[in-house]
Simulated assay, not measured.
Amino acid sequence: MCLRLLSFSPRTRAQLADALRRKGVDDEVAEQVLGRYTEVGLIDDEAFARAWVQSRHNGRGLARRALAAELRQRGVADETVKDAVEELAPEQEESAARELIAKRMAATRGLDPTKRTRRIVGVLARKGYPGSLSYRLVREALEAEGTEELPDIPVDD
């Protein structure tokens, strides 16, 4: 069963343990199987977490906070999550945020600057970006665009 699941996509140890539990596999047997799979390298939560961070950041533009939450949902240990998201450089995160802002700026052109700012900051917040970074980058984008009345929206992280 574990091999079948792993043949479709990489899984964490916790995901495989849940699958075995749902199928009624004895906990002791499940632990032996998972231990052996870990020993031979079929299960590697650290590699899974690193690959997840790069894939989801590059593909969806997710920030550290959102990536950490997704990894925790998949049962990855906190220390492993921390190590994986720390590999994402702040410059990478800021660059991805700028790309998202550029897309949303084009889509919200013509709206009131305050409304634009709230919408774009909201998009970034849902992707896990801190409010202070989001607001600063949106403000810079509005200034670069030549928006005369820049909104003053308080942001809490």
Rank of each mutant, 00 (worst) to 15 (best):
22 R>A: 13
62 L>C: 02
87 E>V: 08
50 R>M: 09
22 R>S: 11
147 T>R: 12
67 L>S: 00
34 L>A: 00
21 R>W: 03
68 A>R: 08
145 E>C: 07
86 E>C: 00
61 G>T: 03
143 E>F: 09
5 L>R: 12
127 K>I: 09
134 S>A: 15
145 E>M: 08
112 D>M: 07
9 S>G: 15
81 V>D: 02
78 D>E: 15
128 G>Y: 05
30 A>L: 02
129 Y>L: 03
69 A>F: 09
74 R>G: 02
72 R>Q: 14
79 E>C: 01
108 T>D: 03
156 D>H: 00
92 Q>F: 06
130 P>F: 10
9 S>C: 12
75 G>W: 02
83 D>V: 00
113 P>V: 08
47 A>Q: 15
94 E>K: 11
70 E>N: 04
44 D>W: 06
35 G>K: 02
103 K>H: 14
116 R>V: 10
22 R>T: 00
6 L>F: 09
142 L>W: 15
77 A>G: 09
139 R>W: 14
32 Q>M: 13
9 S>N: 04
98 R>N: 07
116 R>N: 12
71 L>K: 04
139 R>M: 06
102 A>D: 12
157 D>K: 07
76 V>N: 01
78 D>S: 02
60 R>I: 02
139 R>Q: 09
25 V>D: 01
54 Q>P: 05
85 V>Y: 03
94 E>D: 12
99 E>G: 14
94 E>P: 04
97 A>R: 01
65 R>A: 10
34 L>K: 00
78 D>T: 11
131 G>Y: 02
132 S>L: 14
106 A>H: 07
79 E>I: 08
14 A>G: 05
108 T>S: 09
109 R>V: 09
143 E>S: 13
83 D>Y: 05
70 E>D: 13
18 D>P: 01
26 D>C: 11
120 I>W: 06
78 D>W: 09
122 G>C: 05
31 E>F: 00
19 A>L: 02
66 A>K: 02
95 S>W: 14
85 V>P: 02
149 E>F: 13
138 V>P: 15
121 V>G: 01
95 S>G: 14
